[in-house]
């Protein structure tokens, strides 16, 4: 696909690669987080266990829980991660699996 002419390459949709778009997405994300917490002021909640009645409980759960899971996975990774050829089977097969597009059919 590298033989496209320059005009077409310029037209390519690359919105997500632009730094300005990334900044905007970051703002939207922070905004959505803030909005979800602020919305709780206007909601009557029905906690089942007590602890889930704390203000912003689900935000905390999401934040702390996910951070903990990522950190734990990172530690686990130190223990279980291996090179791709650990089992000695990281082979490029001679057989081209027929379900990879060879450009002959659409």
């Amino acid at each position: 696909m590298r033989d496209k002419n320059m005009d077409e390459q310029k037209k390519e949709f690359d919105w997500f690669d632009r730094p300005s778009s990334r900044r905007l997405l970051w703002r939207l994300l922070w905004g959505a987080c803030a909005l979800s917490v602020v919305a709780e002021f206007f909601v009557h909640r029905h906690p089942h266990f007590g602890i889930d009645g704390i203000f912003g409980f689900y935000a905390l759960l999401g934040f702390i829980g996910c951070s903990a899971m990522i950190l734990f996975a990172k530690m686990l990774g130190k223990w279980v991660k291996r090179g791709e050829d650990y089992y000695g089977d990281n082979i490029e097969d001679d057989v081209i699996p027929e379900d990879i597009d060879d450009g002959n059919h659409d």
Partner: peptide, 25 residues
Amino acid sequence: QLLMFSALVFFLFLPMLKRTATISL
């Protein structure tokens, strides 16, 4: 709340989540 803050964590921790050419036992 749960989902947005999970997403926030993902993008804050993105450097830690960088993929490596590895398998996991």
